[in-house]
């Protein structure tokens, strides 16, 4: 099957999984913004998603996307290392027009996945997981499982977490400023005009997404009672 055994096919897998994740981030960010304006409203969303069947299916889908994206990132990066050959250049310069992010996508991706692990530990493990365990009859306290605001406050009261989340989001910004247009180029949806258009659209979209996430972190780090 061409998707799995050709270079362009493997890139299509990266591209489609990446774009799907970007769309998820857009949704997630919009949802988070509610926490700035209304704690009650935010918790209503948490309640609504919680461990309902549709939220669980969506979570499984997301996990699959991340795994596919990550596995193909490893495969492609290893193949590319091999194609480069063992002997490197003694003298190198970064050519003009080459974005730093484009040559460091894997490192940025690793930072992103570590941040994701931390994020799951801070929130998902306390919320959806607890709810699922509770439903399965385990002896866990589920009284705070839908209280997203409680966990936002708790997490961002700690300056170390704030710093880690900021690093994570900045890495994600770099990953996506290259990733967005690269994904469309990979799908062949680019030419001399659309190349620049996608870059501008990507930069604007990604900056909005990341600023949205950062806003919640900043508001809760500075004033823990926001939205009350």
């Amino acid at each position: 099957m061409w998707l799995f055994n050709s270079s362009v096919g493997k890139k299509v897998i990266m591209s489609v999984s990446g774009i799907a994740l970007v769309l998820f981030l857009l949704f997630h960010m919009s949802m988070n913004l509610v926490a700035i304006f209304s704690a009650e409203g935010y918790n209503m969303i948490c309640e609504f998603l919680g461990a309902n069947w549709y939220a669980l299916i969506a979570t499984a889908g997301l996990a699959a996307l991340v795994v596919v994206h990550f596995v193909y990132a490893i495969i492609l990066t290893l193949q590319n290392k091999k194609a480069r050959g063992g002997q490197g250049y003694a003298y190198t310069v970064k050519p003009k027009n080459v974005e730093w992010a484009s040559q460091n996508m894997f490192v940025l991706g690793v930072i992103v996945i570590l941040g994701m692990a931390l994020h799951l530990f801070n929130f998902w493990a306390n919320m959806q997981l607890v709810e699922v365990l509770h439903m399965l009859g385990a002896n866990v306290d589920a009284s705070l499982a839908a209280d997203g605001v409680h966990y936002i406050k708790e997490t961002f009261a700690c300056p170390v977490y704030v710093a880690l989340y900021v690093i994570w989001l900045v890495a994600l910004w770099f990953h996506l400023t290259h990733g967005f247009w690269s994904a469309l180029q990979t799908l062949g949806w680019a030419n001399q005009i659309w190349f620049n258009r996608w870059r501008v659209i990507g930069n604007v979209l990604v900056t909005i997404i990341i600023l949205g996430f950062l806003a919640v972190v900043a508001v809760y780090a500075v004033c823990p009672c926001a939205g009350c």
Binding site: N5, S6, S7, K10, K11, L76, Q79, N80, K82, A83, R84, P95, K96, N97, V98, E99, S102, Q103, M105, H178, W181, S182, Q185, T186
Partner: peptide, 16 residues
């Protein structure tokens, strides 16, 4: 692919 060239990640070094 068969000859072992790598996968393009759109860095644009080639074009430059």
């Amino acid at each position: 692919d068969e000859l072992g060239f790598g996968n393009c990640t759109n860095t644009r070094a080639c074009e430059a």
